[in-house]
Simulated assay, not measured.
Amino acid sequence: MAVQTGKTLQSHFINTYNNLSVLGKVPSEELGVVLPHEHILVDYTTGLDTTTSFLNGRDVAGLPVTMENLGFTRRFMYSVRENVVLDEIEKAETEVGLYKTSGGGCICEMSVVGMRRKEHSFDDLARISKATGVHIVSTTGFYSESFLSAEIKTMSVQSMAELMKTEVAIGSGPMGLKCGVMYIACSDPLKETEKKALEAAAITHKETGVAIQVAPGRTTDLPFRILDRLYSYGVHGQAISMSHVDRAFSDCETNLKLMSDLCHRGCYINHSLFGKECSHYPCNEDFDFPSDAQRIARIKALVDRGCLDHLLVSHDIVCRNEWACYGGYGYGHMLDHIAPKFLNRGFQRATVDRIMRENPQRWLTCSEFR
Score class of each variant (00 low, 15 high):
78 Y>G: 10
178 K>G: 14
343 L>Q: 07
11 S>N: 13
171 G>K: 08
296 I>N: 02
184 I>D: 02
323 W>H: 06
313 V>D: 00
149 S>H: 01
275 G>F: 11
25 K>S: 14
168 V>S: 09
190 L>S: 06
11 S>R: 12
93 E>I: 15
186 C>F: 08
108 C>V: 15
26 V>M: 05
361 Q>W: 05
24 G>N: 02
300 K>H: 13
284 N>L: 08
40 I>K: 05
215 A>G: 14
148 L>S: 10
175 M>W: 07
370 R>N: 15
42 V>I: 15
53 S>W: 10
246 D>P: 04
149 S>A: 11
118 K>G: 11
159 S>D: 06
364 L>G: 07
178 K>F: 08
21 S>Q: 04
366 C>P: 03
16 T>L: 11
221 D>E: 00
146 S>H: 14
93 E>N: 05
193 T>K: 00
164 M>T: 12
306 G>R: 02
349 R>L: 15
187 S>V: 09
94 T>F: 12
341 K>V: 08
63 L>I: 06
143 Y>D: 00
306 G>Q: 01
326 Y>V: 07
98 L>N: 00
253 E>M: 09
262 L>W: 00
178 K>Q: 09
114 G>I: 06
8 T>V: 15
74 R>W: 04
266 G>A: 09
12 H>I: 15
199 E>Q: 06
22 V>D: 02
354 R>N: 13
254 T>A: 13
178 K>W: 09
78 Y>H: 10
316 D>T: 13
295 R>Q: 07
13 F>W: 10
368 E>Y: 11
246 D>E: 03
257 K>R: 13
102 S>M: 12
196 K>S: 05
81 R>P: 09
81 R>L: 10
136 I>R: 04
360 P>D: 03
355 I>L: 10
104 G>P: 01
67 M>T: 13
246 D>H: 05
36 P>Y: 12
311 L>D: 02
90 E>N: 13
92 A>T: 14
232 S>W: 02
176 G>V: 11
276 K>I: 12
285 E>V: 15
242 M>G: 10
43 D>Q: 06
310 H>L: 05
167 E>D: 04
347 F>C: 08
206 K>H: 13
260 S>W: 01
315 H>G: 11
45 T>M: 04
87 D>C: 08
70 L>C: 09
176 G>E: 03
30 E>D: 04
104 G>F: 10
195 K>N: 02
160 M>F: 10
315 H>E: 08
139 T>K: 03
277 E>Y: 08
106 C>Q: 05
130 K>D: 13
235 V>Q: 03
134 V>L: 07
185 A>T: 12
167 E>S: 13
217 G>K: 00
357 R>G: 15
23 L>K: 08
204 T>A: 13
301 A>F: 02
92 A>D: 00
360 P>H: 06
169 A>Y: 12
364 L>V: 06
17 Y>R: 06
232 S>H: 04
309 D>I: 14
192 E>N: 06
277 E>M: 14
142 F>W: 00
342 F>K: 03
88 E>M: 12
16 T>W: 11
107 I>F: 11
278 C>E: 05
130 K>W: 13
100 K>I: 14
295 R>M: 04
275 G>C: 08
254 T>H: 07
317 I>W: 01
120 H>E: 01
126 A>E: 01
202 A>G: 12
6 G>C: 10
124 D>G: 09
287 F>A: 08
